[in-house]
Design a binder for these strands. Sequence first.
DNA 1: CAAGTGACAATAA
DNA 2: TTTATTGCCACTT
Length: 108
Amino acid sequence: MTDTPDSFFQQIYALVRSVPAGKVTTYGAIANALHTKDARRIGHALHANPDSDLTPCHRVVFSDGRLAPGYAFGGPKEQLRKLELEGVVFLTDTQVDLSKSLYTFPAL
DNA sequence: CAAGTGACAATAA
DNA sequence: TTTATTGCCACTT
């Protein structure tokens, strides 16, 4: 089962879980918090995310506040609904208002 | 083992 | 301002 203790992924999950409801974070923010230059890793990590309930990947968006253009877990609509339900403000169907709902990590 | 692909971001034109 | 290209590094085949 190749249960590899990828601490990197765990850190990402921890950070995503640390994001309060009604707010969203960007891949760059997480990457920065982990002192890495590669934001793609975050995406891969979230894709490998076993529990969307444990790790609200829907709270993670692009640096522009945009969602994945169709690569989301169950479609951007599902993500939009969840985020909107949590109180996140949306500019368009696939873009969030980072000016109001962007969350940054404290120890950054 | 090597090459290709990829839930991104930053910079250049 | 928007679009295109490059860079980074892991995961997949």
